[in-house]
């Protein structure tokens, strides 16, 4: 009924229904290890960094980012990308032009008041054009 102390795998130790006669002979003991991962293999940690997949993924991402940034800078330096967005907002010069036009329209409105056809500063003088001493020619 006793099992040998150097041959005590887990099931043998825990399964009390087993008898010593049923003890497997020359059987490999069970292995209780940490589950292995492809990415985080313990062996990988021991490898140099340039052989690790994580390094190459980071490098690829970084290179892509750099490529985008430099592309933007290059395009901007040639005035191809940011220019339309800049034009959307009126510049100070455009504001001044707009104010200048409004001022001119105000001046035209003043001229408009002066040009009113119903108003004249040159009324014919209120004089009697038929002055005469002789009665037959006199009329106001």
């Amino acid at each position: 009924m006793r099992s040998k102390p150097n041959q005590e795998p887990l099931d043998i130790l825990t399964n009390q229904t087993l008898f010593s006669t049923e003890e497997p002979i020359f059987e490999e003991p069970p292995h209780f290890g940490v589950p292995q991962s492809d990415l985080l293999a313990i062996e990988d940690l021991k490898k140099p960094f340039y052989l690790r997949p994580v390094f190459w993924i980071e490098a690829l991402l970084g290179a892509s980012l750099m490529l985008i940034v430099f592309s933007l800078l290059f395009a901007q330096s040639r005035g191809q990308i940011l220019k339309p967005r800049a034009v959307k907002q009126p510049t100070q010069q455009q504001e001044q032009q707009s104010v200048g036009f409004l001022k001119r329209i105000d001046e035209l409105n003043q001229n408009f008041q002066d040009a009113d056809p119903t108003k004249s500063s040159l009324f014919f003088p209120p004089v009697d054009m038929t002055i005469a001493l002789d009665e037959q020619n006199t009329s106001k």
Partner: peptide, 29 residues
């Protein structure tokens, strides 16, 4: 590597032309 990338992005702001500095053809009344 990351600080290099971030530094590049930040420094790119230095070269961005201000919006107001984009000039349009002169059309003063």
């Amino acid at each position: 590597f990351l600080s290099l990338v971030v530094g590049t992005i930040i420094s790119s702001g230095v070269f961005v032309t201000p919006v107001s500095a984009v000039s349009s053809p002169s059309l003063s009344p």
